[in-house]
Structure formats: structure tokens, C-alpha cells
Amino acid sequence: MDTIFEGLKKAIVMLVTLDADIYRITLFTLKVSGLATLISLAISLPAAFFIAIKEFPGKNFLISLANLGMGLPPTVVGLWVCLLLWRSGPLGRLRLIYTPTAIVIAQTVIATPVILALVTAALQQVDKKLRLHIMSLGATPLQMLFLMAKEARYSILAAVIAGFGAIVSEVGASMMVGGNIAGYTRVLTTAIVLETSKGNFEDALALSFILLLMAYLGTMALTYLQQRRHEDEYGN
């Protein structure tokens, strides 16, 4: 009980005293996971659009693959990316292992199926007749994508938050491909693992509270937007 209380106290002290290390790690975590989320979204939007509006053989197989990928264990992804980027591996010459780029790559692999599956579902929910209407207005494929995404904006936002949540809380892959190097590739989750293994429970708890705060802010944003959608539908 004392440890938890001390941890919370320490977290608050660290936050209000602008503890340099904590801020660096938090900011770095946001940057890495944010970038991975953006790349995943950039891949998922056109892919989901294609899957949602085109009929092609193997379509359902592809969707089931994305759905399966939503449960991809981060450690497995970490291992694959590790083998790929290892100095003697196929992409070894790029010298990316144990760099922030390596973490972004691994997290992108983890987030993409999540975002792809959810964005596909979101776009598929846009009424087919509404698509016909947008088409009749003379929309180009790109305008169609934009308007459908706008129509499904809340669901797409939920997909983004789900994807971000999956990678910001993930530890296995970041540890394996990033190496948890202080001041270089250390993120919140790997820092928590380290502090815990050293027996620094208060530091670990402080970090965990910051991670929770981030998760909470994400959920808050989502809830807020869902409430707004309610107002939208009734025009108030």
C-alpha cells in the first residue's frame, strides 16, 4: 500500500518538477508511437478504401487476415523485425537495429492490422446508396475516399486511438528491437520493466501512472467525440 502511495507521490513530484528524464521518455514515447500510428493510418486508409468498395477474389480472406493480425503478439512481431534488421539479416546493412527507427517499424507492424481492420469496417458501414450519391455528384476516387472517411470520421478516430493504445502500451517489441538504451531508445513501458527489475518500484509506479494518464486522455477524447456525434445527428 505504501509503495503505491509513494509511487503516486513521486509521479506527481516528477511531473510538477519537470523531471528531465521523465519528460524526455514521455515525449519520446509519444513521438515514436504517434509516428507509427500515423504511418499505419497512411497505409490503412487507401487499403481499407480499396477493400471496402471493390469486389475482388480473396477479399474476405484479406479481411480475416487483418482481423487475425489485430491479435498479433508484440513479442512475435519484435522477433520478426529483429531477425529482419539484425546486422547479418536481410536489412542488416541499414544498421537500424537498436535505433528509434526500429521501434517505429515494429510498432507500425503491430498497429497496421488493428487500424486496417477497424477502418475497413468503418468505411464498409457507409451506406452503399450514399456512395452512389457521392458518385453522382461527380466525385473522383480521391474525393470519394475523402468524403467516405469524413462520413466515418468518428469510427476512424476510434481506430486510431485503438491502434495508438496497442503500441504505446506494448513492451516486447520495443525492448527487442530498440534495446532499451537510456536516452536513445527507452520508452515508458521498457523503462517500467527496467525499474521494476531493479526493484525501484516507486519509479516504476510513477512511470506507470504517466502511461495511465496518457491512456485516459485518449479515452477521454474518444468519449468526447462520441458525445458530439449524438448532437450531430439531432442537429442541436
Partner: peptide, 19 residues
């Protein structure tokens, strides 16, 4: 097709609107 579609307008059987 897109260029010619822009010279036309359609009112469907049921009114459809974007959100």
C-alpha cells in the same frame, strides 16, 4: 465518365445526405 457525370444531377428515390 466522371467528366460527363458532372454535367448531370440525380435525385434518388430516397433522399440521401452526408452527415
Amino acid at each position: 465518365r466522371i467528366r460527363i457525370r458532372r454535367k448531370m444531377a440525380v435525385v434518388f428515390q430516397e433522399p440521401l445526405f452526408l452527415n
